[in-house]
């Protein structure tokens, strides 16, 4: 009897957890629709978005530039050692450029974005909820969806592709520094191979589409976790952690789906 009861308890827990996550997913979807419909109001007050672009985009820029530079440099170094055995070291440029544009640019940027900007968004909105600022706005007949959530969401969606493009560009420059200046590759070969092999539509545009999708998902998760958090210091901490974990997993999963859709025929 005891064993059966224990088994049933376990099953009940799994069922409850499943239901809970579905409920959250449903709430999150409704929330996303609300956010998107609130975005229309931003055309009246574009300054709200500019302010958020500063805290979401500009303040994330430094970490993106530094990370991009080092990722590009490491990639150049590693691919050089792998390719030099085949006498194909001229392909360092194209290898780095393709990896950055297709995968590393959007994905690494999105992961850093979730860690830097996403967690900050969750904490900020969650704290506004905990200190009754959101309630206060509602009582002032101001919709916090329009004034607080939508500008942050919009800023995230705009920032991500910009950040990812900057990441890739800085990465290519870093690779150039290592490959040409340090390892003595021919600079003409470094640039000409990518120019032949990297396709504007297939590689560059698809990479940007990826980063827009990641931007929507990461910002959505961040603002939802903040808006939906339990307004205590503990709940806020959990929500911030969830933002980073969930958006990282979502980004990696979506990257697989998008790659499969875009680059396989």
């Amino acid at each position: 009897m005891n064993l059966i009861n224990r088994f049933l308890d376990r099953m009940q827990k799994i069922g409850a957890a499943t239901l809970h996550s579905f409920r959250r997913l449903g709430r999150g979807s409704v929330f996303l629709l609300e956010v998107i419909s609130s975005c229309a109001s931003l055309f009246v007050r574009p300054l709200l978005v500019v302010k958020q672009l500063y805290s979401v985009g500009v303040q994330t820029l430094i970490i993106i530039v530094v990370a991009g530079l080092f990722v590009g440099m490491v990639m150049a170094l590693q691919s050089y050692y792998a390719l030099v055995d085949f006498g194909a070291e001229d392909s360092v440029g194209v290898m780095v450029a393709l990896s950055l544009l297709r995968e590393l640019g959007p994905v690494v940027t999105a992961l850093l974005f979730a860690g830097r900007a996403g967690s900050a968004l969750t904490a900020e909105i969650g704290l506004m909820k905990a200190t009754e600022q959101l309630s206060g706005m509602e009582m002032m007949a101001v919709n916090p969806m329009q004034r607080v959530v939508a500008p942050r969401f919009m800023a995230g969606v705009i920032s991500m592709p910009l950040l990812a493009t900057i990441f890739s560009a800085v990465g290519v420059i870093g690779a150039y520094m290592v490959a040409v200046e340090l390892l003595g590759l021919d600079s003409g070969a470094f640039w000409s191979q990518p120019q032949n092999k990297v396709d504007l539509h297939l590689d560059l545009y698809n990479g940007i589409i990826k980063s827009v999708v990641f931007g929507v998902v990461a910002t959505w998760i961040a603002v939802f976790e903040g808006y939906d958090c339990i307004p205590t210091s503990e709940g806020l901490g959990q929500a911030t952690t969830r933002t980073v974990v969930h958006s990282s997993l979502a980004i990696l999963f979506l990257d697989f789906v998008l790659t499969a859709l875009m680059f396989t025929k």
């Binding site: 200190t131 009754e132 600022q133 309630s135 206060g136 706005m137 509602e138 009582m139 919709n143």
Partner: peptide, 19 residues
């Protein structure tokens, strides 16, 4: 409801000022 709220003022326990 929002029109009605414009005619209501509310003082929250914490003040709820926009930080």
């Amino acid at each position: 409801l929002f029109e009605l709220r414009q005619r209501m003022g509310m003082l929250f326990q914490s003040g709820a000022l926009l930080t």
